[in-house]
Design a protein around this nucleic acid. Structure first.
Lengths: 243, 243
DNA sequence: GCCGGGCGTCAGGATCCCGTCAAGACCACC
DNA sequence: GGTGGTCTTGACGGGATCCTGACGCCCGGC
Protein backbone atom coordinates (compact mmCIF):
# COMPACT_ATOMS: atom_id res chain seq x y z
CA UNK A 1 0.00 0.00 0.00
CA UNK A 2 1.24 3.45 -0.89
CA UNK A 3 1.21 6.40 1.44
CA UNK A 4 0.17 9.84 0.19
CA UNK A 5 0.68 13.15 1.95
CA UNK A 6 -2.19 15.57 1.22
CA UNK A 7 -1.31 19.22 1.70
CA UNK A 8 -4.27 21.64 1.54
CA UNK A 9 -5.64 24.40 3.75
CA UNK A 10 -9.27 23.70 2.92
CA UNK A 11 -10.65 21.31 5.58
CA UNK A 12 -13.50 20.18 3.34
CA UNK A 13 -11.24 19.27 0.47
CA UNK A 14 -8.84 17.53 2.84
CA UNK A 15 -11.71 15.49 4.16
CA UNK A 16 -12.99 14.61 0.71
CA UNK A 17 -9.52 13.62 -0.49
CA UNK A 18 -8.87 11.59 2.62
CA UNK A 19 -12.03 9.57 2.12
CA UNK A 20 -11.58 9.05 -1.59
CA UNK A 21 -7.90 8.21 -1.40
CA UNK A 22 -8.41 5.80 1.43
CA UNK A 23 -11.13 4.09 -0.56
CA UNK A 24 -8.67 3.82 -3.43
CA UNK A 25 -6.26 1.93 -1.21
CA UNK A 26 -3.93 4.71 -0.12
CA UNK A 27 -2.60 5.35 3.33
CA UNK A 28 -3.38 9.04 3.87
CA UNK A 29 -1.51 11.65 5.87
CA UNK A 30 -2.58 15.30 5.81
CA UNK A 31 -1.09 18.72 6.47
CA UNK A 32 -2.82 22.10 6.45
CA UNK A 33 0.11 24.44 5.88
CA UNK A 34 3.60 24.47 4.48
CA UNK A 35 5.57 23.98 7.69
CA UNK A 36 3.44 21.06 8.76
CA UNK A 37 3.79 19.64 5.27
CA UNK A 38 7.58 19.64 5.42
CA UNK A 39 7.56 18.14 8.90
CA UNK A 40 5.07 15.44 7.92
CA UNK A 41 6.94 14.63 4.76
CA UNK A 42 10.06 13.99 6.80
CA UNK A 43 8.25 12.08 9.51
CA UNK A 44 5.76 9.95 7.60
CA UNK A 45 7.90 9.01 4.56
CA UNK A 46 5.11 9.31 2.00
CA UNK A 47 5.48 7.70 -1.40
CA UNK A 48 3.84 10.66 -3.11
CA UNK A 49 2.88 14.22 -2.13
CA UNK A 50 -0.31 15.94 -3.25
CA UNK A 51 0.43 19.62 -2.84
CA UNK A 52 -1.90 22.63 -2.98
CA UNK A 53 -0.12 25.77 -4.06
CA UNK A 54 -2.30 28.23 -2.12
CA UNK A 55 -1.15 27.74 1.43
CA UNK A 56 -1.51 30.25 4.28
CA UNK A 57 2.07 30.36 5.51
CA UNK A 58 4.41 29.39 2.68
CA UNK A 59 4.16 29.71 -1.06
CA UNK A 60 3.71 26.34 -2.72
CA UNK A 61 6.93 26.83 -4.60
CA UNK A 62 8.78 27.20 -1.31
CA UNK A 63 7.38 23.93 -0.10
CA UNK A 64 8.53 22.32 -3.30
CA UNK A 65 11.98 23.80 -2.85
CA UNK A 66 12.09 22.52 0.72
CA UNK A 67 10.98 19.09 -0.35
CA UNK A 68 13.08 18.51 -3.42
CA UNK A 69 16.57 18.34 -2.00
CA UNK A 70 15.85 15.12 -0.20
CA UNK A 71 12.41 13.86 -1.19
CA UNK A 72 12.82 11.56 -4.16
CA UNK A 73 9.19 10.57 -4.69
CA UNK A 74 6.77 12.27 -7.04
CA UNK A 75 4.97 15.51 -6.17
CA UNK A 76 1.60 16.25 -7.77
CA UNK A 77 0.58 19.90 -7.56
CA UNK A 78 -3.07 20.86 -7.07
CA UNK A 79 -3.95 24.46 -7.70
CA UNK A 80 -6.81 26.82 -8.39
CA UNK A 81 -4.57 28.94 -10.55
CA UNK A 82 -4.56 27.74 -14.12
CA UNK A 83 -2.20 30.27 -15.65
CA UNK A 84 0.37 28.76 -17.91
CA UNK A 85 3.15 30.59 -16.07
CA UNK A 86 2.11 29.03 -12.77
CA UNK A 87 2.15 25.59 -14.28
CA UNK A 88 5.52 26.03 -15.94
CA UNK A 89 6.98 27.44 -12.74
CA UNK A 90 5.79 24.58 -10.58
CA UNK A 91 6.78 21.90 -13.08
CA UNK A 92 10.24 23.34 -13.53
CA UNK A 93 10.59 23.69 -9.77
CA UNK A 94 10.36 19.93 -9.45
CA UNK A 95 6.69 19.04 -9.56
CA UNK A 96 5.82 15.90 -11.50
CA UNK A 97 2.29 16.86 -12.48
CA UNK A 98 -0.07 19.82 -12.22
CA UNK A 99 -3.82 19.50 -11.81
CA UNK A 100 -6.12 22.54 -11.75
CA UNK A 101 -9.12 22.86 -9.48
CA UNK A 102 -11.85 22.01 -9.87
CA UNK A 103 -10.57 18.60 -10.80
CA UNK A 104 -12.11 15.27 -11.62
CA UNK A 105 -11.40 12.72 -8.93
CA UNK A 106 -11.01 9.79 -11.32
CA UNK A 107 -8.44 11.72 -13.29
CA UNK A 108 -6.54 12.69 -10.17
CA UNK A 109 -6.40 9.07 -9.10
CA UNK A 110 -5.13 8.06 -12.53
CA UNK A 111 -2.42 10.71 -12.38
CA UNK A 112 -1.40 9.51 -8.94
CA UNK A 113 -1.14 6.00 -10.31
CA UNK A 114 1.08 7.26 -13.12
CA UNK A 115 3.29 9.13 -10.68
CA UNK A 116 3.66 6.08 -8.46
CA UNK A 117 4.15 3.70 -11.36
CA UNK A 118 7.54 5.13 -12.03
CA UNK A 119 8.52 6.54 -8.69
CA UNK A 120 10.87 4.18 -6.96
CA UNK A 121 9.03 0.91 -6.98
CA UNK A 122 9.44 -0.38 -3.45
CA UNK A 123 7.57 1.34 -0.63
CA UNK A 124 10.55 1.00 1.67
CA UNK A 125 12.45 2.91 -0.95
CA UNK A 126 14.98 4.31 1.47
CA UNK A 127 16.41 0.91 2.32
CA UNK A 128 17.74 -1.73 0.02
CA UNK A 129 18.36 -5.04 1.68
CA UNK A 130 20.27 -8.06 0.46
CA UNK A 131 21.22 -11.25 2.21
CA UNK A 132 24.64 -9.88 2.94
CA UNK A 133 24.46 -6.10 3.29
CA UNK A 134 21.95 -3.27 3.70
CA UNK A 135 21.99 0.15 2.09
CA UNK A 136 20.00 2.93 3.75
CA UNK A 137 19.69 5.61 1.10
CA UNK A 138 18.14 8.19 3.40
CA UNK A 139 20.63 7.82 6.23
CA UNK A 140 23.56 7.24 3.89
CA UNK A 141 24.49 4.22 5.90
CA UNK A 142 25.73 0.82 4.78
CA UNK A 143 25.94 -2.19 7.03
CA UNK A 144 27.53 -5.54 6.21
CA UNK A 145 26.25 -8.33 8.42
CA UNK A 146 24.92 -5.66 10.74
CA UNK A 147 28.26 -3.89 11.04
CA UNK A 148 28.40 -0.29 9.76
CA UNK A 149 30.87 0.30 6.96
CA UNK A 150 32.48 3.61 6.08
CA UNK A 151 32.24 4.73 2.47
CA UNK A 152 34.00 7.68 0.90
CA UNK A 153 31.80 10.27 -0.85
CA UNK A 154 32.67 8.95 -4.29
CA UNK A 155 32.03 5.37 -3.29
CA UNK A 156 28.68 6.36 -1.87
CA UNK A 157 27.66 8.30 -4.97
CA UNK A 158 28.49 5.33 -7.15
CA UNK A 159 26.79 2.79 -4.94
CA UNK A 160 23.59 4.78 -4.54
CA UNK A 161 23.41 5.22 -8.28
CA UNK A 162 23.52 1.46 -8.76
CA UNK A 163 21.31 0.53 -5.85
CA UNK A 164 18.61 3.01 -6.81
CA UNK A 165 17.35 0.67 -9.50
CA UNK A 166 17.91 -2.93 -8.47
CA UNK A 167 18.27 -5.35 -11.33
CA UNK A 168 18.69 -2.68 -13.95
CA UNK A 169 21.81 -2.45 -16.03
CA UNK A 170 23.31 1.01 -15.56
CA UNK A 171 25.50 2.11 -18.44
CA UNK A 172 29.03 3.22 -17.73
CA UNK A 173 28.37 6.59 -19.33
CA UNK A 174 25.33 6.99 -17.12
CA UNK A 175 27.34 6.23 -14.01
CA UNK A 176 30.23 8.47 -14.90
CA UNK A 177 27.91 11.35 -15.65
CA UNK A 178 26.00 10.92 -12.42
CA UNK A 179 29.03 10.66 -10.17
CA UNK A 180 31.78 12.73 -11.81
CA UNK A 181 29.88 14.92 -14.26
CA UNK A 182 29.38 15.06 -18.03
CA UNK A 183 33.04 15.89 -18.70
CA UNK A 184 34.22 12.50 -17.45
CA UNK A 185 32.12 10.23 -19.62
CA UNK A 186 35.19 8.53 -21.08
CA UNK A 187 37.09 7.84 -17.89
CA UNK A 188 36.02 4.24 -17.51
CA UNK A 189 39.11 3.81 -15.36
CA UNK A 190 37.34 5.43 -12.43
CA UNK A 191 34.57 2.90 -12.56
CA UNK A 192 36.96 0.01 -12.41
CA UNK A 193 38.84 1.44 -9.47
CA UNK A 194 35.82 2.33 -7.38
CA UNK A 195 33.83 -0.76 -8.22
CA UNK A 196 36.77 -2.76 -6.95
CA UNK A 197 36.78 -0.75 -3.73
CA UNK A 198 33.04 -1.20 -3.26
CA UNK A 199 33.35 -4.91 -3.81
CA UNK A 200 36.16 -5.13 -1.30
CA UNK A 201 33.93 -3.46 1.26
CA UNK A 202 30.60 -5.08 0.47
CA UNK A 203 31.01 -8.39 -1.28
CA UNK A 204 31.57 -11.60 0.62
CA UNK A 205 34.21 -12.52 -1.93
CA UNK A 206 35.49 -9.52 -3.84
CA UNK A 207 37.11 -11.66 -6.51
CA UNK A 208 33.77 -13.25 -7.44
CA UNK A 209 31.09 -10.58 -7.06
CA UNK A 210 27.55 -11.71 -6.48
CA UNK A 211 25.77 -8.39 -6.04
CA UNK A 212 27.73 -5.78 -7.98
CA UNK A 213 27.92 -7.40 -11.38
CA UNK A 214 29.86 -6.41 -14.47
CA UNK A 215 28.25 -6.46 -17.87
CA UNK A 216 31.28 -6.28 -20.17
CA UNK A 217 31.17 -3.42 -22.62
CA UNK A 218 27.95 -2.01 -21.25
CA UNK A 219 28.01 -1.18 -17.57
CA UNK A 220 27.23 -2.58 -14.16
CA UNK A 221 24.20 -4.06 -12.46
CA UNK A 222 23.19 -4.34 -8.83
CA UNK A 223 21.42 -7.60 -8.21
CA UNK A 224 19.38 -8.07 -5.07
CA UNK A 225 19.14 -11.81 -5.45
CA UNK A 226 22.71 -12.95 -5.34
CA UNK A 227 24.34 -15.21 -7.80
CA UNK A 228 25.25 -18.58 -6.36
CA UNK A 229 28.63 -18.63 -4.64
CA UNK A 230 31.58 -19.21 -6.87
CA UNK A 231 32.53 -22.90 -7.24
CA UNK A 232 36.08 -22.18 -6.14
CA UNK A 233 34.56 -21.34 -2.77
CA UNK A 234 34.61 -25.03 -1.94
CA UNK A 235 34.50 -24.61 1.79
CA UNK A 236 33.63 -28.23 2.27
CA UNK A 237 29.90 -27.67 2.42
CA UNK A 238 28.06 -30.95 2.91
CA UNK A 239 25.82 -30.21 -0.07
CA UNK A 240 28.70 -30.26 -2.53
CA UNK A 241 28.76 -34.01 -2.34
CA UNK A 242 28.98 -34.70 -6.08
CA UNK A 243 32.24 -35.15 -7.94
CA UNK B 1 19.88 16.76 -27.40
CA UNK B 2 16.68 14.80 -27.02
CA UNK B 3 14.69 13.38 -29.86
CA UNK B 4 10.90 13.60 -29.86
CA UNK B 5 8.49 11.72 -32.10
CA UNK B 6 5.41 13.80 -32.91
CA UNK B 7 2.36 11.80 -33.96
CA UNK B 8 -0.55 13.84 -35.32
CA UNK B 9 -2.68 13.74 -38.43
CA UNK B 10 -3.10 17.51 -38.69
CA UNK B 11 -0.33 18.84 -40.98
CA UNK B 12 -0.62 22.35 -39.60
CA UNK B 13 -0.19 21.23 -36.01
CA UNK B 14 2.68 18.97 -37.00
CA UNK B 15 4.38 21.89 -38.65
CA UNK B 16 3.83 24.18 -35.67
CA UNK B 17 5.10 21.57 -33.24
CA UNK B 18 8.10 20.81 -35.39
CA UNK B 19 9.14 24.45 -35.45
CA UNK B 20 8.56 25.10 -31.77
CA UNK B 21 10.16 21.91 -30.57
CA UNK B 22 13.17 22.39 -32.77
CA UNK B 23 13.56 25.91 -31.40
CA UNK B 24 13.41 24.41 -27.91
CA UNK B 25 16.38 22.21 -28.73
CA UNK B 26 14.65 18.99 -29.69
CA UNK B 27 15.43 16.75 -32.58
CA UNK B 28 12.02 16.23 -34.18
CA UNK B 29 10.65 13.23 -36.06
CA UNK B 30 7.03 13.12 -37.20
CA UNK B 31 4.39 10.57 -38.14
CA UNK B 32 0.90 11.14 -39.47
CA UNK B 33 -0.79 7.89 -38.57
CA UNK B 34 -0.51 4.99 -36.19
CA UNK B 35 1.36 2.55 -38.37
CA UNK B 36 3.97 5.10 -39.34
CA UNK B 37 4.25 6.05 -35.69
CA UNK B 38 5.09 2.52 -34.62
CA UNK B 39 7.59 2.10 -37.43
CA UNK B 40 9.25 5.45 -36.72
CA UNK B 41 9.38 4.77 -33.02
CA UNK B 42 11.27 1.56 -33.72
CA UNK B 43 13.58 3.08 -36.31
CA UNK B 44 14.36 6.55 -34.96
CA UNK B 45 14.79 5.71 -31.25
CA UNK B 46 13.04 8.77 -29.86
CA UNK B 47 13.53 9.75 -26.22
CA UNK B 48 9.88 10.78 -25.87
CA UNK B 49 6.69 10.37 -27.91
CA UNK B 50 4.05 13.06 -28.30
CA UNK B 51 0.94 11.18 -29.33
CA UNK B 52 -2.36 12.46 -30.65
CA UNK B 53 -5.24 10.15 -29.85
CA UNK B 54 -7.36 10.93 -32.91
CA UNK B 55 -5.54 9.15 -35.69
CA UNK B 56 -7.02 8.02 -39.01
CA UNK B 57 -5.95 4.39 -39.01
CA UNK B 58 -5.45 3.21 -35.44
CA UNK B 59 -6.98 4.26 -32.19
CA UNK B 60 -4.52 6.09 -30.03
CA UNK B 61 -4.88 3.44 -27.36
CA UNK B 62 -3.78 0.83 -29.86
CA UNK B 63 -0.68 2.82 -30.65
CA UNK B 64 0.02 3.02 -26.93
CA UNK B 65 -0.43 -0.71 -26.60
CA UNK B 66 1.91 -1.30 -29.51
CA UNK B 67 4.49 1.04 -28.04
CA UNK B 68 4.45 0.07 -24.41
CA UNK B 69 5.73 -3.46 -24.51
CA UNK B 70 9.14 -2.27 -25.60
CA UNK B 71 9.36 1.53 -25.61
CA UNK B 72 11.14 2.61 -22.46
CA UNK B 73 10.71 6.37 -22.77
CA UNK B 74 7.80 8.55 -21.72
CA UNK B 75 4.66 9.03 -23.84
CA UNK B 76 2.75 12.32 -23.62
CA UNK B 77 -0.76 12.13 -25.01
CA UNK B 78 -2.27 15.07 -26.83
CA UNK B 79 -6.00 14.99 -27.40
CA UNK B 80 -9.00 17.08 -28.26
CA UNK B 81 -11.16 14.88 -26.07
CA UNK B 82 -11.17 16.12 -22.53
CA UNK B 83 -13.50 13.57 -20.99
CA UNK B 84 -12.30 12.18 -17.75
CA UNK B 85 -12.77 8.63 -18.97
CA UNK B 86 -10.52 9.25 -21.95
CA UNK B 87 -7.81 10.61 -19.72
CA UNK B 88 -8.03 7.76 -17.25
CA UNK B 89 -7.99 5.22 -20.05
CA UNK B 90 -4.92 6.66 -21.70
CA UNK B 91 -3.04 7.15 -18.45
CA UNK B 92 -3.75 3.63 -17.31
CA UNK B 93 -2.79 2.29 -20.71
CA UNK B 94 0.71 3.53 -20.18
CA UNK B 95 0.71 7.23 -21.02
CA UNK B 96 2.83 9.43 -18.78
CA UNK B 97 0.86 12.64 -19.21
CA UNK B 98 -2.29 13.87 -20.91
CA UNK B 99 -2.68 17.34 -22.42
CA UNK B 100 -5.95 18.54 -23.93
CA UNK B 101 -6.21 20.64 -27.06
CA UNK B 102 -6.09 23.54 -27.35
CA UNK B 103 -2.97 23.59 -25.28
CA UNK B 104 -0.49 26.19 -24.21
CA UNK B 105 2.87 25.62 -25.84
CA UNK B 106 4.89 26.73 -22.82
CA UNK B 107 3.03 24.26 -20.64
CA UNK B 108 3.53 21.46 -23.14
CA UNK B 109 7.26 22.14 -23.20
CA UNK B 110 7.37 22.13 -19.40
CA UNK B 111 5.56 18.80 -19.32
CA UNK B 112 7.97 17.38 -21.86
CA UNK B 113 10.84 18.50 -19.67
CA UNK B 114 9.25 16.78 -16.69
CA UNK B 115 8.75 13.59 -18.66
CA UNK B 116 12.36 13.59 -19.80
CA UNK B 117 13.70 14.50 -16.37
CA UNK B 118 12.43 11.23 -15.04
CA UNK B 119 14.17 9.37 -17.78
CA UNK B 120 13.53 5.81 -18.74
CA UNK B 121 10.93 3.46 -17.41
CA UNK B 122 11.52 1.25 -14.42
CA UNK B 123 12.71 -2.27 -14.98
CA UNK B 124 9.77 -4.53 -15.62
CA UNK B 125 7.71 -1.77 -17.20
CA UNK B 126 8.91 -2.43 -20.69
CA UNK B 127 9.28 -6.10 -21.43
CA UNK B 128 8.62 -8.41 -24.30
CA UNK B 129 7.47 -11.82 -23.20
CA UNK B 130 7.35 -15.09 -25.10
CA UNK B 131 6.55 -18.54 -23.92
CA UNK B 132 10.20 -19.35 -23.67
CA UNK B 133 12.15 -16.19 -22.84
CA UNK B 134 11.61 -12.64 -21.62
CA UNK B 135 13.36 -9.47 -22.73
CA UNK B 136 13.31 -6.57 -20.28
CA UNK B 137 14.33 -3.58 -22.34
CA UNK B 138 14.52 -1.15 -19.43
CA UNK B 139 16.72 -3.39 -17.28
CA UNK B 140 18.62 -4.74 -20.29
CA UNK B 141 18.06 -8.23 -18.99
CA UNK B 142 17.09 -11.42 -20.75
CA UNK B 143 15.82 -14.49 -18.95
CA UNK B 144 15.24 -17.91 -20.44
CA UNK B 145 12.89 -20.01 -18.35
CA UNK B 146 13.44 -17.55 -15.55
CA UNK B 147 17.22 -17.87 -15.61
CA UNK B 148 19.16 -14.70 -16.45
CA UNK B 149 21.25 -14.94 -19.59
CA UNK B 150 24.21 -12.72 -20.34
CA UNK B 151 24.39 -11.04 -23.71
CA UNK B 152 27.35 -9.21 -25.19
CA UNK B 153 26.83 -5.59 -26.32
CA UNK B 154 26.53 -6.56 -29.96
CA UNK B 155 24.11 -9.37 -29.24
CA UNK B 156 21.98 -7.03 -27.16
CA UNK B 157 21.95 -4.30 -29.79
CA UNK B 158 20.83 -6.78 -32.42
CA UNK B 159 18.18 -8.41 -30.26
CA UNK B 160 16.65 -5.14 -29.10
CA UNK B 161 16.45 -3.96 -32.69
CA UNK B 162 14.44 -7.06 -33.59
CA UNK B 163 12.32 -7.16 -30.50
CA UNK B 164 11.31 -3.52 -30.88
CA UNK B 165 8.92 -4.40 -33.65
CA UNK B 166 7.39 -7.78 -32.92
CA UNK B 167 6.15 -9.54 -36.02
CA UNK B 168 7.65 -7.02 -38.41
CA UNK B 169 10.25 -7.96 -40.94
CA UNK B 170 13.43 -5.99 -40.28
CA UNK B 171 15.67 -5.64 -43.32
CA UNK B 172 19.29 -6.70 -43.13
CA UNK B 173 20.45 -3.24 -44.14
CA UNK B 174 18.31 -1.78 -41.39
CA UNK B 175 19.82 -4.09 -38.82
CA UNK B 176 23.38 -3.59 -39.95
CA UNK B 177 23.01 0.16 -39.90
CA UNK B 178 21.43 0.19 -36.47
CA UNK B 179 23.99 -2.09 -34.84
CA UNK B 180 27.26 -1.53 -36.70
CA UNK B 181 26.70 1.79 -38.45
CA UNK B 182 26.04 2.95 -41.99
CA UNK B 183 29.46 1.82 -43.23
CA UNK B 184 28.69 -1.85 -42.65
CA UNK B 185 25.50 -2.22 -44.67
CA UNK B 186 27.01 -4.96 -46.85
CA UNK B 187 28.47 -7.15 -44.14
CA UNK B 188 25.62 -9.62 -43.98
CA UNK B 189 28.13 -12.04 -42.52
CA UNK B 190 27.85 -10.32 -39.16
CA UNK B 191 24.13 -10.95 -39.07
CA UNK B 192 24.53 -14.64 -39.65
CA UNK B 193 27.15 -15.00 -36.95
CA UNK B 194 25.32 -13.05 -34.29
CA UNK B 195 21.90 -14.39 -35.08
CA UNK B 196 23.34 -17.83 -34.57
CA UNK B 197 24.72 -16.78 -31.20
CA UNK B 198 21.40 -15.30 -30.15
CA UNK B 199 19.60 -18.46 -31.18
CA UNK B 200 22.03 -20.57 -29.21
CA UNK B 201 21.30 -18.49 -26.15
CA UNK B 202 17.56 -17.97 -26.54
CA UNK B 203 15.96 -20.59 -28.71
CA UNK B 204 14.85 -23.94 -27.29
CA UNK B 205 16.35 -25.58 -30.36
CA UNK B 206 18.90 -23.38 -32.08
CA UNK B 207 18.86 -25.47 -35.25
CA UNK B 208 15.13 -24.88 -35.76
CA UNK B 209 14.38 -21.33 -34.64
CA UNK B 210 10.84 -20.54 -33.58
CA UNK B 211 11.21 -16.94 -32.46
CA UNK B 212 14.11 -15.43 -34.40
CA UNK B 213 13.12 -16.21 -37.94
CA UNK B 214 15.04 -15.81 -41.18
CA UNK B 215 13.40 -14.31 -44.24
CA UNK B 216 15.82 -15.38 -46.99
CA UNK B 217 17.14 -12.50 -49.01
CA UNK B 218 15.26 -9.93 -46.96
CA UNK B 219 16.08 -9.91 -43.30
CA UNK B 220 14.92 -11.28 -40.00
CA UNK B 221 11.73 -11.27 -37.98
CA UNK B 222 11.03 -11.66 -34.30
CA UNK B 223 7.83 -13.59 -33.67
CA UNK B 224 6.20 -13.51 -30.28
CA UNK B 225 3.94 -16.45 -30.95
CA UNK B 226 6.26 -19.31 -31.68
CA UNK B 227 6.16 -21.55 -34.66
CA UNK B 228 5.21 -25.13 -33.80
CA UNK B 229 8.15 -27.27 -32.70
CA UNK B 230 10.12 -28.88 -35.45
CA UNK B 231 8.93 -32.40 -36.35
CA UNK B 232 12.40 -33.84 -35.82
CA UNK B 233 11.91 -32.97 -32.18
CA UNK B 234 10.09 -36.26 -31.75
CA UNK B 235 10.86 -36.58 -28.05
CA UNK B 236 8.28 -39.28 -27.62
CA UNK B 237 5.41 -36.93 -26.96
CA UNK B 238 2.11 -38.80 -26.97
CA UNK B 239 0.75 -36.54 -29.71
CA UNK B 240 3.49 -37.44 -32.16
CA UNK B 241 1.87 -40.80 -32.76
CA UNK B 242 2.75 -41.10 -36.44
CA UNK B 243 6.01 -42.49 -37.83
C1' DG C 1 21.53 -33.18 -62.99
C1' DC C 2 24.29 -29.02 -62.57
C1' DC C 3 25.04 -24.52 -60.70
C1' DG C 4 24.97 -20.40 -57.89
C1' DG C 5 23.30 -17.60 -54.17
C1' DG C 6 22.11 -17.31 -49.52
C1' DC C 7 22.39 -19.18 -45.03
C1' DG C 8 24.31 -21.61 -40.79
C1' DT C 9 28.43 -23.21 -38.49
C1' DC C 10 32.96 -23.26 -36.79
C1' DA C 11 37.48 -21.87 -35.25
C1' DG C 12 41.33 -18.89 -35.09
C1' DG C 13 43.72 -14.59 -34.05
C1' DA C 14 43.57 -9.51 -33.15
C1' DT C 15 41.57 -6.37 -30.31
C1' DC C 16 39.19 -4.48 -26.61
C1' DC C 17 37.78 -4.51 -21.91
C1' DC C 18 38.17 -5.45 -17.08
C1' DG C 19 40.38 -6.16 -12.52
C1' DT C 20 44.38 -5.07 -9.93
C1' DC C 21 48.08 -2.58 -8.00
C1' DA C 22 50.79 1.27 -6.79
C1' DA C 23 52.50 5.85 -6.83
C1' DG C 24 51.68 10.69 -6.84
C1' DA C 25 48.54 14.86 -6.24
C1' DC C 26 45.36 17.10 -3.63
C1' DC C 27 42.86 18.48 0.48
C1' DA C 28 41.35 19.08 5.28
C1' DC C 29 42.44 18.90 9.67
C1' DC C 30 45.43 18.87 13.39
C1' DG D 1 54.31 22.22 8.75
C1' DG D 2 52.93 17.56 9.31
C1' DT D 3 49.59 13.79 8.67
C1' DG D 4 45.97 10.93 7.20
C1' DG D 5 42.58 10.12 3.94
C1' DT D 6 40.77 10.57 -0.64
C1' DC D 7 41.03 11.09 -5.45
C1' DT D 8 43.46 10.72 -9.85
C1' DT D 9 46.43 8.48 -13.14
C1' DG D 10 49.18 5.05 -15.39
C1' DA D 11 50.68 0.34 -16.37
C1' DC D 12 50.07 -4.56 -16.67
C1' DG D 13 48.11 -9.40 -17.30
C1' DG D 14 44.24 -12.24 -18.19
C1' DG D 15 40.06 -13.04 -20.27
C1' DA D 16 36.12 -12.04 -23.03
C1' DT D 17 34.54 -10.24 -27.33
C1' DC D 18 34.70 -9.18 -32.04
C1' DC D 19 36.04 -9.77 -36.71
C1' DT D 20 37.24 -12.76 -40.45
C1' DG D 21 37.59 -16.48 -43.66
C1' DA D 22 36.50 -21.13 -44.91
C1' DC D 23 33.37 -24.87 -45.35
C1' DG D 24 29.03 -27.42 -46.11
C1' DC D 25 24.07 -27.35 -46.64
C1' DC D 26 19.68 -26.16 -48.73
C1' DC D 27 16.89 -24.44 -52.39
C1' DG D 28 15.52 -22.43 -56.69
C1' DG D 29 16.81 -21.69 -61.57
C1' DC D 30 18.47 -23.59 -65.76
Amino acid sequence: MSRVLVVDDDPQLRRALRITLRAAGFDVVTAEDGRTALAEAAAAHPDVVLLDLGLPDLDGTEVLAGLRPWFTGPVVVLSARGDSSDKVGALDAGADDYVTKPFDMAELLARLRVALRRGTAEPGQARVVTDHFTVDLAAKQVTVDGVPVRLTPTEWALLSELVRSPGRLVGQRELLQAVWGPAYERETNYLRVYLAQLRRKLEPDAAHPRYLLTEPGMGYRFSKDPLPPHPSQAQGGPLEGGR
